[in-house]
Nucleic acid binder design. Structure first.
Length: 469
RNA sequence: GGCCCGUUGGUCAAGCGGUUAAGACUCCGGCCUUUCACGCCGGCAACACGAGUUCGAGUCUCGUACGGGUCACCA
């Protein structure tokens, strides 16, 4: 461990146009590891493959980190002392390092087109001449053929590999661009990265990176390898198979804080029983010793739970603000109070996209089935409902206008007068005004939101329905 | 296939040689109640298998099975 230097970590995604949930978690851990010790968190874009260029992809990454609250100290847009932070803008600087390795006999020019390379022993001078004469070439690492390479990973412990398992990986491609692996090592060193946090798909490459560091005589960073996030026991989470990306989740009405909190707990445990953590709290409790080696399955049900809780914890003003667009997507009638609708929704939605189907009845009353008036527990059926609605109508007509409290009081009063349970009156009123069995809020809230005229209109319609039945 | 890694309820997971094997999500009862939700109370459900070490193993060792990762001039 680099105890005497400040920790520097980086999140180094390739710009694919979206953010994986796993990528977000890697970014989070890198952020936490740096920040909890007052270190530096860096964003670096790994775009050495130009055929994969996706318009706007870097912006998506930047925006993701921003919404997630993972503020980077150095990176694209804000710069920093070891920039540029986009690899395609650094492409000129890799070649000299590859040449340096050739001089040290740790790499070689590979002039072969074939996959099986036969030019490993070609002398550097001779290869250079042939290259100068116009032959195209790549530069490969000259991996040792015997012995073993070992390294220590904070999560995986000591990993030993036989060198004969290592191949001569390409450092510089025929097009002159560095490979991901090479650029990664060079940049991590040049940017002073002390702790490398990445997914377990890279653990097999780690020994090769170490050989490179050793050939250069550079200090090897601390490796922290995190396991994969899976869709089920046998498939990793993937956009291609329809699994949601971070952006998909936000579009579906999950809150950034909830997603971050949930994702933090996939493959890492704080040890105690607390599950809800703000980013600030994570900074306090996060410790690499809690990172697990085994893959974790992404469970949308558990995320739902986190999201519901986060929604409930919002102040009603905050909730109204984020719920308003969803509410307005179905409620066009301007006499309906968005704020009142938001109020009855807050405790009842798992995610914001649940909202439209829950409140559509405010806008349009469907031609519901009168069977809905039958409810044993409330002691009501169609005949009773008819009487209840008639009584409610008479009571409401006496009120020129109303508030929530007035609706409540008059209904309770009416039920008392009739000598029935509150529910016996409330049920039919709610059914007549909403036209569905399950609604956010009860009869009182619904009547109040609809307003006197619309409520009376719906109650009268209900009476008519029952009369003709 | 070679190499590397993993395996505690359906899911996330605690556990670091002695526990009635936590907790959370889901699911199922019940209570509360103006439907639903919330809340409260209760319940179902796990150490992959086989050897070994040990007085004692979910915890240590080896093997087996199953699963994953990786073996690109992709990242």
């Amino acid at each position: 461990m680099n105890n005497n230097t400040k920790i520097r970590t980086r999140f180094a995604p390739s710009p694919t146009g979206y953010m994986h949930v796993g990528g977000l978690r890697t970014a989070l851990y890198a952020f936490l590891i740096a920040k909890k010790s007052g270190g530096t968190f860096i964003l670096r874009i790994e775009d050495t493959d130009q055929t994969r260029f996706v318009e706007g992809a870097t912006e998506i990454i930047i925006k993701t980190l921003e919404t997630a609250g993972l503020k980077y100290d150095e990176g694209p847009g804000i710069g920093g002392p070891v920039g540029p932070y986009v690899q395609s803008e650094r492409k000129e600087l890799y070649r000299p390092y590859a040449e340096e390795l050739c001089e040290k006999d740790a790499a070689y020019y590979c002039l072969c087109e074939a996959e099986e390379c036969s030019c490993r022993e070609l002398r550097y001078e001779e290869a250079k001449q042939r290259a100068a004469a116009g032959e195209s070439f790549a530069i490969r690492m000259k991996a040792p053929r015997d012995g073993e390479t070992k390294f220590v990973d904070v999560v995986y412990g000591e990993v030993v590999v036989q060198n004969k398992e290592l191949d001569d990986m390409v450092l510089l491609k025929r097009d002159g661009m560095p490979t991901y692996n090479f650029a990664n090592v060079i940049d991590d060193h040049l940017m002073g990265i002390t702790h490398v946090i990445r997914g377990s798909e890279y653990i097999s490459s780690a020994p090769k990176y170490n050989l490179l560091y050793q050939a250069f005589g550079w200090e090897i960073p601390t490796y922290i390898t995190v396991s994969l996030i899976m869709r089920d026991a046998t498939h990793k989470l993937s956009k291609r198979h329809g699994d949601p990306t971070y952006d998909d989740l936000l579009n579906d009405g999950y809150l950034p804080d909830a997603v971050l909190n949930y994702v933090a707990l996939l493959g890492w445990s704080p040890g105690g029983e607390q599950e809800f953590f703000t980013l600030g709290e994570l900074l306090e409790v996060f410790d690499v010793s809690g990172i697990s080696k085994s893959p974790a399955i992404f469970d949308i049900e558990k995320l739902n739970h986190f999201n519901s809780e986060y929604i409930r914890k919002l102040t009603s003003e905050e909730f109204e603000k984020i719920a308003a667009p969803y509410i307005k997507s179905v409620i066009k009638n301007e006499s309906i109070s968005i704020s009142a609708v938001a109020k009855i929704l807050q405790a009842r939605c798992v995610k914001l996209s649940d909202i439209p189907e829950k409140i559509d009845f405010f806008e349009t009353l469907v031609d519901y089935d009168t069977e809905l008036f039958v409810h044993q527990k409330s002691k009501t059926d169609k005949t009773i409902a008819f009487d209840m609605l008639s009584a409610a109508k008479a009571a409401f007509e006496k009120l020129p206008d109303w508030t929530n409290d007035e609706v409540h009081d008059i209904l309770i009063e009416t039920a008392e007068k009739l000598g029935v349970k509150n529910a016996t009156l409330m049920w039919p009123v709610r059914i007549a005004t909403a036209g569905k069995a399950v609604t956010p809020g009860g009869a009182v809230e619904i009547c109040n939101i609809l307003g006197r005229n619309e409520t009376l209109r719906r109650i009268e319609a209900g009476i008519e329905k029952l009369r003709s039945n």
